[in-house]
Amino acid sequence: MPEPAAIHPDPHLPATVNAKALPWEPSPAPGVERRRLERTGGERARVTSLVRYAPETGFPAHEHGGGEEFLVLSGVFSDETGDHPAGSYVRNGVGTRHAPHTDAGCVIFVKLWWMHPDETGLTRVNTRDEANWGDAPWGARLPLYEDAREQVELWRLRPGAVTEVTVEGGLEVFVVSGSATLGDDRLSAWSWARRPQAGVLTLATLSGATVYLKRGHLADLPPTPDA
């Protein structure tokens, strides 16, 4: 398999990608395909992507030297820690090891090599549990993870919602469902946007949307795989 090319490799530049417009590309594991949104280059790299597992497929056991963060968009993702159905948010810290697989198939939004060496634990959040959500002026908000470097949340925007997002240390947005606008950019379902510049951006929707937001993480980047 040829060496993958870099995709939007500079985290200090803005980028917008409609993942549904990209082709599915094969991975090293049979039956597992990817749509890569950003990557520093190489098979072992800092990367953000969508990964689709066909039924009865998986990867051999491996270690995550730079950590792994993912949100299950459809199906059921499984590993040694259990089954993670659609709506599961998972963080596997630096140095964790597993053999991911699926019986029925699944699609995940996943980030690799975005964790600092001191994050070694596990995080599991069921985003389908309404008890985890809290009211917000734009609809509802679900905190997923927060430390001194980054804040990760899901926002559920009610139809017609308009709100402002303060950007300090970078912003990343992924539209899980529905459609929204971020500033002047229209984002349909499975669209991803990176905004490194500090400022205030308007996030709005006409028909409603569920949106993943990560903030602050671009100010203090973890080591790259080849560092």
Rank of each mutant, 00 (worst) to 15 (best):
E146M: 09
P26W: 07
C106D: 09
M1D: 14
F77E: 08
A198C: 13
P223H: 13
E33D: 14
V47T: 15
R91I: 15
P14A: 05
S49Q: 12
H8N: 15
W133Y: 08
T210P: 01
P23R: 06
L142I: 05
I108K: 07
R97W: 03
G134A: 07
M1N: 07
P30Q: 12
R215M: 12
V107H: 05
A99N: 07
V125I: 15
D135A: 10
D184E: 14
V90P: 04
D118W: 03
P143T: 04
G105A: 11
A54V: 05
G169I: 05
D147G: 08
H62L: 10
W192C: 09
E56S: 14
A131W: 01
E164Q: 15
G178Q: 03
R215I: 03
A99F: 04
H101C: 08
P117K: 00
L206K: 11
A6I: 04
S188D: 15
V107M: 10
P85G: 02
E3Y: 00
S49Y: 00
V211Q: 01
L218Y: 03
N92S: 11
R149E: 12
G134F: 01
P55Q: 12
L13G: 07
P143A: 14
T102N: 05
R36C: 15
E68Q: 11
V47N: 05
V167A: 02
G139E: 08
H64D: 10
L122C: 04
V51E: 14
E168F: 02
D220L: 09
P222E: 02
K214A: 13
G169S: 02
E38Q: 09
L203M: 13
H217Q: 04
P100N: 14
H8M: 02
E153I: 07
V175W: 11
N132D: 08
E172P: 04
W114F: 06
E153S: 10
T224H: 08
E164N: 13
R215F: 03
P100F: 08
V32T: 07
E63P: 01
R215N: 10
R39Q: 12
Y212C: 00
T40I: 07
R35A: 09
P196S: 12
L13E: 15
E119P: 00
T102D: 08
D185Q: 14
T210W: 03
V211I: 15
R39V: 12
V175H: 11
G199E: 07
P14H: 10
D135P: 02
H84T: 02
A45S: 15
L206V: 06
P30W: 01
E33K: 04
